[in-house]
Computed example of a mutant assay.
Amino acid sequence: MARWLVISDNHGDRTILEQLRHQLAPDRVFHCGDSEMTVDDPWFQNTWVVRGNMDRDQRFPLTATPKVDGSQVLLVHGHHDAVNWDLTQLALHAQAEQAQAVFFGHTHELAVELVHGCLFLNPGSISQPRGEFRTLGGTCALVTVTAKNWQVQYYTRDGQPVRKLNFTFPRATQKG
């Protein structure tokens, strides 16, 4: 079992990143871009991170495709995959990478679904939320990875779980 923190769109608010990493104590951390920080910031040590459309540091990669805890992950911001419109382009990208989990941001709206055995997750913006759940004041997601499931729990900026935003999806152990 592993706990993965997925966070996005903090837009320069470094303090919230430190607080949530400390409070939620994840095993792995994924940042979906628009940090507006520099790639050499110590917070990014032991973190997979990508460049968003508001990140000026060109040293951030546009995509990351780590194999983590036995799962192929695709990490993007989403602006190059047209996520504002639908997930078609992102799904094709995921298929090309043989991803079992896709983490993305950009829209500032949380979302999670399982499509053809692949987990698609947007943690929402931790600092500038939009959409149906904007009144929560910002969200991130903690994914508990087990041998059989993805357990997704959304958290607010103050590290509190949102009870109605708790989901379990079956996890494919091998993409084929």
Rank of each mutant, 00 (worst) to 15 (best):
L87S: 01
F104V: 04
V73R: 08
A96S: 15
G124V: 00
E132S: 01
I126D: 03
F133M: 09
P66F: 06
A64F: 07
A94S: 13
E109W: 04
N53C: 04
T107Y: 14
F104M: 06
L92M: 10
D69K: 04
Q72N: 11
A64T: 08
Q100K: 05
T107E: 12
H93W: 07
F103C: 06
F133T: 07
H80P: 00
V83P: 02
V68G: 00
H93G: 00
H106K: 07
L119G: 12
N122H: 11
R134P: 00
F133S: 04
G105R: 05
Q95A: 11
V115S: 11
E97G: 02
L110H: 14
A94Y: 12
T107G: 10
Q95T: 09
K67P: 01
L87M: 13
L62D: 08
A82Q: 13
L136C: 06
L74S: 04
W85T: 02
L92R: 15
H116F: 06
R51C: 06
D69H: 07
I126V: 15
A82R: 14
F103A: 06
A94G: 13
A96K: 14
N53D: 14
A91F: 07
S125T: 05
M54L: 12
D57E: 04
G70T: 10
T135S: 14
W85A: 03
H108N: 11
H106G: 01
L90V: 06
Q98Y: 00
L110I: 01
T65I: 01
Q89C: 03
G124M: 00
V83T: 09
A111T: 05
G137D: 13
